[in-house]
Design a protein around this nucleic acid. Structure first.
Lengths: 325, 325
DNA sequence: TTGTAAGCGTTATCAT
DNA sequence: ATGATAACGCTTACAA
């Protein structure tokens, strides 16, 4: 900046002003400064700027998985919205591990982010403490709780599980199955589904828990297990994700099963491909774009300080009935 | 740090030393400092540290899409590897747009990253200039060129297209089709496939270019177009991604087509689900984990300065023959 | 082993 | 409208 100033014939501060608010310098000097910047190829040092202004324009985001579109799509809209306001995203993958998350939170916080986006409402005590101590807007997404660290935007997984159970009961199923990936929120849905189903007419629920992440292969294996080992003969199976459900669909096809005749399948997430499956997948829709945007807006509202954002926003969900169930 | 020092009864520098290299302070003072840190809940300011040391321990990564697993899986392994060495990732989505990329490069560079990861070898002149001027390791992934900005790791898309054409010729197909998403590298594969196929026994190539990103729905629509509008009756169709190929598979099933009998389909990427499709998908395997790790290692080697990394590494690809072709 | 002093490249506060 | 000066919170000589 000093160099740019020297070339433009002004002081370093004037260059700083020109860059942060061009209306604060005269048109003539602005022009000279712009020229000097072009000549030198000057790129401002945002680190120094952040240090001096106490505003990093950096937002930290922690997700369980970068490769799971369910999470990455939220980050996508979140990033886009934050970017409109000049924020960049420091992104890390915690892998569903609270201890890892703690390490990342600490590392991210040291970069002085202006806000933090977390996935889920389960965090270690130390994580909560650090976050609270940072004194910046914190938003937890994908779930809701009456006592967020700061703010949260999501929906009730317990409600979702129950809603699918009611759907199954209404459709007259006596038997059901669950196929669940290794994800806390998925387990929550599974449990509330099972409880509700059994409390109402449901006779029994066959359960298959996938050891790792959701994948089509895991879905195929799950249905094979349910049928071959657990003796599932008919009914509706509730999968913790559309990808898993797709695996079941393929395995069912391979076994010559009719859907929904012999077997009904319900997914979760309503990913783009769900409607294009054969049969089209009945699933639970969650508006992930809205999730990301709402999270961003909650943070922005707090940063701008104009409107005080509501601490918890329940975005709900919707069962989309298609052909598979 | 000054506060921590005061409590521990030492100066601020000593605290800095204790944190950066605990062996540089006496065990006794180290203990006192550690206690003081615990009491105060002190978190070092990485911004100030980076400003002073000229080392941000931040690495910038630019990808076309966050939600396309093909790119996110590379970022995943890249991040993991970089993290082992204490680097964090500033990630942005450029959306296949060179002008957007330029804006992001400039924004990222202002944060003084220690290295940059770019996707592809096509960049605006201004982007190249800024990157070169930054004087840090730059690695371009997913493609190779004899003249990278700094380093590149990937494979030849032209070679891949030709290899699939040869595969088609060897299998005796006279007719072929291409289904291509709106991605420069995919178009490159399509063109070299088509040229090679026609130069050798191939009679004609039906082409469907998807307007937007790859999706299952786009794949279904593509096959419908190829058959209903373009008159494709048989042959092998080369898709620019496994997701697209999956869409073709589903559409073909829905039309009662036999595969590979009536139609043969080849995907690209060998995503996890490819082997679990019905029929299992013949596709081109690219080792994305290796890609991410190699990119990270190239950067690390340059940063450490011990071994001088080779500027371009060709990781190749492999046609995985399964049932669909 | 520890401390002092200078400096990293900005922004903020006051003057002028 | 512009400039001088002091932070911002660290690291890196250099000194003790």
């Amino acid at each position: 900046m000093a160099t740019v100033g020297r070339i433009a014939g002004v002081s370093q501060v004037t260059v700083s002003r020109a860059l942060s608010d061009s209306s604060k310098v005269s048109p003539l000097t602005l022009k000279k400064i712009e020229d000097a910047i072009k000549v030198t190829g000057f790129v401002p040092n945002a680190l120094a700027g952040a240090l001096a202004s106490q505003q990093s324009h950096l937002v930290s985001a922690l997700v369980p998985s970068l490769t799971n579109i369910v999470y990455s799509s939220v980050v996508k809209t979140f990033s886009q919205r934050m970017r409109e306001f000049g924020y960049q995203i420091l992104l890390s993958e915690t892998g569903f591990d609270l201890t890892e998350e703690e390490v990342f939170v600490s590392a991210h916080l040291s970069r002085q982010p202006d806000a933090v986006l977390l996935t889920g409402i389960q965090h270690s005590a130390q994580t909560r403490r650090m976050l609270l101590g940072a004194g910046i807007p914190i938003v937890e997404v994908w779930d809701i709780t009456a006592s967020p660290i700061d703010m949260c935007v999501g929906f009730s997984h317990a409600d979702a599980g129950r809603a699918v159970a009611d759907f199954a009961i209404d459709a007259g199923f006596a038997f059901a199955g669950t196929v669940t990936a290794n994800d806390e929120r998925a387990k929550l849905r599974r449990d509330s589904f099972t409880n509700r189903f059994l409390q109402n007419e449901g006779q029994s629920v066959f359960a298959h828990d996938c050891p790792g992440a959701a994948s089509m292969g895991a879905g195929r294996a799950a249905l094979a297990d349910l049928i071959d080992n657990q003796g599932l003969k008919s009914g509706m199976v509730f999968c913790s994700s559309d990808v898993l459900a797709q695996g079941l669909l393929i395995e069912a096809h391979a076994r010559g099963l009719k859907m929904p005749g012999d077997l009904s399948i319900v997914g979760f997430g309503d990913q783009e491909f769900a409607k294009d499956l054969e049969p089209a997948l009945t699933t639970v829709r969650v508006d992930r774009e809205l999730l990301g945007r709402t999270a961003a807006d909650a943070i922005l509202a707090r940063i701008m300080g104009t409107e005080s954002p509501q601490p918890v926003s329940d975005l709900g969900f919707e069962i989309v009935r298609r052909m598979s169930a």
